[in-house]
Design a protein around this nucleic acid. Structure first.
Length: 140
DNA sequence: GCCAACGTTGGC
DNA sequence: GCCAACGTTGGC
């Protein structure tokens, strides 16, 4: 299984919006960046992801699961763009802020810390475990 | 609200 | 195929 990080502005699409979709989930559409798209193409059903709020929160707030592999993005006719579907799994007891990530030596190589603009990022296993521990959720 | 960093676009 | 110009993102 691989681990990822999905970034969103809460005013556009928030964790609460994601939770409201329940087990049906929602497609992670609107991505117009090749690196982010390529990451989504790598995803398999069952992969887990961190849900990050950019802008005001700047914190990882929950865990999501990939429930559908990459497929054409329904919000555009441009066939270059694809997206996966994800559903909310569990909220973090404690949101893991960007500052916390920057301060943690285990997370110094995290993409979020070094390239915060990439909207869909890979997460290393050790990073995943560290973030889950900080967030107060079981890592599975 | 500013601005640095980055990615994309399009003229040459 | 290079690179300047432009638009967007997101931390501060």
């Amino acid at each position: 299984m691989n681990y990822w990080l999905f970034k969103s502005e809460p005013s556009t699409w928030s964790w609460d919006d994601q939770v409201a979709k329940g087990d049906e989930g929602e497609e992670w559409d609107g991505v117009r960046n090749y690196q982010a798209r390529n990451n989504m193409r790598e995803m398999a059903v069952g992969d887990r992801g961190l849900f990050y709020h950019s802008q005001k929160d700047k914190a990882i707030v929950g865990i999501v699961e990939v429930i559908a592999e990459a497929h054409p993005d329904s919000t555009t006719d441009d066939d270059r763009w694809e997206c996966v579907d994800i559903k909310a799994i569990a909220p973090f007891e404690t949101p893991v802020t960007l500052d916390m990530c920057k301060e943690d030596p285990r997370l110094e190589e995290m993409v979020l810390v070094n390239n915060s603009r990439l909207s869909v990022q890979p997460v290393a296993v050790k990073e995943w475990k560290a973030v889950c521990k900080l967030g107060g959720v079981r890592e599975d």
